[in-house]
Design a protein around this nucleic acid. Sequence first.
RNA 1: GGCGCUAUCGUCUAGCCUGGUCUAGGACACCAGAUUCUCAAUCUGGCAGCACGGGUUCAAAUCCCGUUAGCGCUACCA
Length: 493
Amino acid sequence: MIRVRFAPSPTGYLHIGNVRTALFNYLFAQHEGGKFILRIEDTDKERSRPEFIEGLVEDLAWMGIRWDEGPGIGGDSGPYQQSERLEIYRKFLRDLIQKGKAYECYVTEEEIEEMKRQARLEKKPPRFDNRGRNFSREEIEKRRARGIRPTVRFKIENPRLKVHDLIRGGVEFNLDEMAGDFVIQRADGLPTFHLAVCVDDGLMKITHVIRGEDHLSNTPKHILLLEAMGFKPPQYGHLSLIHGPGGEPLSKRLEAVSVREFRRRGVLPEALANYIALLGWAPGQSPGAGRTGGRSPLDPPASGGDREIFTWEELKEAFDLKQVNKSASLYDPHKLDWVNGEHLRKLPDEDFSRRALAYLKAEKKLKWDETEVHRVLPVFKDNITRFEELEERLRILEDNFSYEDPALIKTETAREIFKAVLSILPTVRGEGEALFESLMNALKPQCKARGKELFMPFRMALTGRAHGPELKRIVPVLGLERCRRRFERALQT
RNA sequence: GGCGCUAUCGUCUAGCCUGGUCUAGGACACCAGAUUCUCAAUCUGGCAGCACGGGUUCAAAUCCCGUUAGCGCUACCA
């Protein structure tokens, strides 16, 4: 059974970068019929904050990424919050020390700082020289007497290591060149990330660790640690990092790329998932789908490497870790908007209205009658890229708008048109677009204006705006009575 | 500095493993045209790329070496 995990530390909200890690883990698990585990890594008590845990859980749930084990639902390997697993880590730590695979290290932070300073001066790579390994009894007693609390370091015995990365292929490390023995328990008695991760991945029987590239260099340490504790290391796959639109690190604009922000602006969760999945992944080209082939729309959607729009189900079906590419990519807001628009337009009117309404309510932007809004919403389906634009569009429901271009309704022709409309309005019948047709049929004999000359003043009187959805769609949702009021108002302006 | 990773249109990518079918395909963005009310949507067309230098080969985007650039790690953060 495949078991993967997403292990965020609650030091901020979910954003494009870490939600992609979550998504790839989730899709992989779903595709393979495995389990997806959520684990909260809050061993850094300085930076971790409880409200971020809630935020993470909420954002993940909103996205539609569901965990099989983790906070809120439990599971066989709990607890799933590292701050509640401290006893477990201590037990493994004692064991490691007992077996001689780790040791208490009385070297102080100041000494290490000095060591680094020296190294810089000599233009040598700064690395810990493992001096704490060989302190004499007396030295240790002396340091203890000075009140120095020890860290615990893991002994690196065989520093050369070859790792097969699921995404990158073979990667070779030489830990000698990188660093010395590393800390697995801080002086304050809390485990470091390295220890906690390895104990948890071991105990939770994680089979595949899919995480950010920033952990690639940690992998040899983790494999060594896992083995020292008697666990079989999982397989590792490292995802490249994502950068902002200008190539700058994402951390510089975390707010703009947070899941919360996308939700606030009215992005569909499945569209976000779709877009993010496309960052660093593309469905491989099926053998038949060559450049000249040209697939017909009737071909099964899962084929071909040029697909862009996926439902959640299609994503789970098509996702393949082997097709994830190694290079970093930039977040492009334009394409997200396009993907979102595609998903919006694919929604049946009823679903579109329901979800748009839910958005407006959640964001406290519903200022009009709910049933009426529900009825009007589909008119805007082709006109928006995000729900956030709806607030402005819906002002069409208000009678006392100001005219964007008042000159348009003041011309002689405009006044003639309005008078003619008002005169034929009582005779107009019909539903939907037929209503508009009926209106136009009655109107044409009564006035000579045609084309733009006719429609622009018409639109301005009705909506106050020069642009908007087609009139044949606007008129029926506004209703004849409201139209009458607006034409009369235009005449008096 | 050391170690590691990466490198195809402005951006996301297909192709690379198993060299020829690639005068490199798709998508976003951009530009132009169509759609006889606008905007949008939609359709059509256009612009634009194998980082650089060597090799191997009859043949290299694809294999090898080097250079350059970007990124990551180099914490008692994760």
